[in-house]
Nucleic acid binder design. Sequence first.
DNA 1: ATACACTCCGTACCGTAGTACGGAGTCAAA
DNA 2: TTTGACTCCGTACTACGGTACGGAGTGTAT
Lengths: 146, 146
Amino acid sequence: MNTRTISKVAKKAGVGVETVRFYERKGLITQPPRSSTGGYRVYPADTAGQIRFIRQAQELGFSLREIEELLSLRTDPATDCADVRERAQTKLTEVTRKIAQMRKIQAALKQLIAACPGQGALQVCSIIEAIEVPEKPSAMPKQKRR
Amino acid sequence: MNTRTISKVAKKAGVGVETVRFYERKGLITQPPRSSTGGYRVYPADTAGQIRFIRQAQELGFSLREIEELLSLRTDPATDCADVRERAQTKLTEVTRKIAQMRKIQAALKQLIAACPGQGALQVCSIIEAIEVPEKPSAMPKQKRR
DNA sequence: ATACACTCCGTACCGTAGTACGGAGTCAAA
DNA sequence: TTTGACTCCGTACTACGGTACGGAGTGTAT
């Protein structure tokens, strides 16, 4: 038969079987119903897509907890809309900030590449300076610090 | 005295002292010279910036190993320029891809927010579909898979 | 009917990235 | 000169995100 077993879903998503079970335990993917005969997991069509989303989001620096938060924005289609909206807004701010940082690194890399075969290559580009520096200790006068 | 001790650098960078030592062991920050008297670490001015860069890059989904690679693009100012260029190009491709993915999530969140207070909110936006689906198993006919 | 692949589950183990601990030595302000 | 904060080092412990193992059951192609 052409049922969506765990190994097929895993392959489609590009992960191992164990990883699928792991995400299931974590509540990151929809709990699949079981076949009445052997108690095997039978997956809905979209599970592989969910897993690929998880992997992509991880590469973008989201933890599984954060990914769960992202997914929850869609999971509950009946919950308080204003609440969803607020959480989405929070995520959006974060994502926007990340994009900005990423763009700075991108620009630094481009600059590096452009400056490189110029042969006279010295202190051309620093990458580190791509990201601006928030300087933690706010100038408090008369502190202990030696 | 106004020497840059480990705790001051840590505070400036917004991390703990142990973390600074950890990054040092990993070779991610410049090995600081030691004070001749007590053997204490005395940091150059830019170390805190390096550490902040590391933390930012982590938030963008880079592992410490990858960050080391990024930093190495600048660390060796005398090494083979073509090599640096090539590695920078690889990173640039990766960064550009990440930005694209991030933008898709950003767009999905925006759509979600826009669609939300419309009250008739049903299956409006999926987030997951923000990321397009590469479908792993290339259609090979006559396989074992059941 | 048998073989072999697949599934189940719990538990154990792994690498990464820190974080904590603790005893001994050092620095500087009172 | 004593006190308290700071530093040293190595080692141990933690959380996260998987990955592997292994024994028992199931499904199906030959």
